[in-house]
Design a protein around this nucleic acid. Structure first.
Lengths: 148, 148
DNA sequence: TTTTATAATTTAACATGTTAAGTATATGAC
DNA sequence: GTCATATACTTAACATGTTAAATTATAAAA
C-alpha cells in the first residue's frame, strides 16, 4: 500500500505548484521592466489597483492588490514618500485612510502599461486568446468554489 | 481614445492577478496545518520535493520547489539544523551538495500529507475532479507556451 | 596544457510574506 | 448611554522573495 505522500503528485505537477509556476512564467518577463521604471512588482500592483479603482481605503487596496495589511502599510509609506501616491484621512472612518494615485503615479502606470500590454498580447498569441480567456474564467470559478 | 492602462483589465481580473488569487485560495487553508507541524510553506515544499525525487542537488531542488537559490540556501540551513534534511557533498561536482530527507523529515511529510490530501479532495469535490485535471493541464500548456 | 566561459552555490542587501499583537475607532446589544 | 465585540490599520518579528555580486569548481575552446 502506498504511503500517504505517494498519493500526492510531484509538487511541480500539483495544483499549488502549477499555479505558482504559471504565475512565475507570466511575471518573470515583466519584473525587469518594472525595475527599470523604478518599482517592484508589489508596488506596481498597488499603483495598478489605484488606477483601476482609486481613491480607496487600505483594506480594499490590500484585497484588490492581493497583499497583506502590513505589506500595504509598508509599501504605501515608500510610495507616499516618493509622491507616487496621495494619502488622506478617511472622513467616514477615523481609523483609516483613503489612498489615490498622484499625477506622477499615473504617469508611471501609463508608461509601464505599454510594455505590459505587449507582453500579455504575446502570451495571448502563443496560447490562444479564447483559450486564455477560458483559463482565467476557470481560475475564477475555482476560487469561487474554494472560497464559497 | 482610452489610455493604455485602461486597455488592461482590473488587476484582480488579470491573468497574473487571477493566478495569484487562485494560489492563495488553494494554500491559505493549508498553511495553518503546516504551521502546526512546525514548518512554513516554503520549508514544506522543500521536504515535499525531497520526498518526490530526493536525493538531489540544490539547483534541481530549487527548480522543483519553485524557490530562488538564495532562498534554498537559507531554508536548508534551518532544515539541516533541525535534522529534517541530510546534506552531503556532491561526489560528482565539488561546487555543490546532494540533499535528502532524513527519517524525521519523512515522518513530517507523511503526517502533513494526510491533511493535504483531504484538502485537495475537498477542492476536487467542489470544483470537479475532471475539471481540475483539465485546469492543471491548461496551466501547464500555458507555461510551455510562454517559456517555449 | 592553458585560457576563457559557464555554472553551482553562497553572501549581501533590501523588499515583502506572514502571523501575532497593539491602538484607536466603529458597531451592536442591552 | 454604557459596555462588549469587531474592525481598520500599524507595529513587531521573523521567514522568504528578489537581484547582484562573490567564490569555487567545471566545461569548453584554443
Amino acid at each position: 500500500m502506498k504511503k500517504n505522500s505517494k498519493n500526492l503528485p510531484p509538487y511541480r505537477h500539483s495544483l499549488a505548484g502549477t499555479l505558482l509556476a504559471a504565475r512565475e512564467a507570466v511575471m518573470a518577463p515583466i519584473r525587469p521592466m518594472l525595475a527599470e521604471a523604478g518599482v517592484t512588482e508589489q508596488q506596481w500592483r498597488v499603483l495598478r489597483v489605484l488606477d483601476d479603482s482609486g481613491p480607496i481605503d487600505l483594506k480594499t487596496l490590500a484585497d484588490s492588490a492581493l497583499l497583506f495589511g502590513p505589506s500595504v502599510t509598508r509599501i504605501l509609506k515608500d510610495l507616499v514618500e516618493r509622491e507616487l501616491v496621495i494619502r488622506q484621512a478617511n472622513p467616514k472612518d477615523g481609523r483609516g485612510a483613503i489612498v489615490s494615485l498622484s499625477a506622477s503615479g499615473r504617469t508611471l502606470i501609463e508608461e509601464t502599461a505599454t510594455h505590459t500590454i505587449l507582453q500579455l498580447s504575446l502570451y495571448s498569441k502563443k496560447f490562444g486568446d479564447k483559450r486564455l480567456k477560458n483559463l482565467i474564467a476557470e481560475l475564477r470559478a475555482l476560487i469561487k468554489a474554494i472560497d464559497g
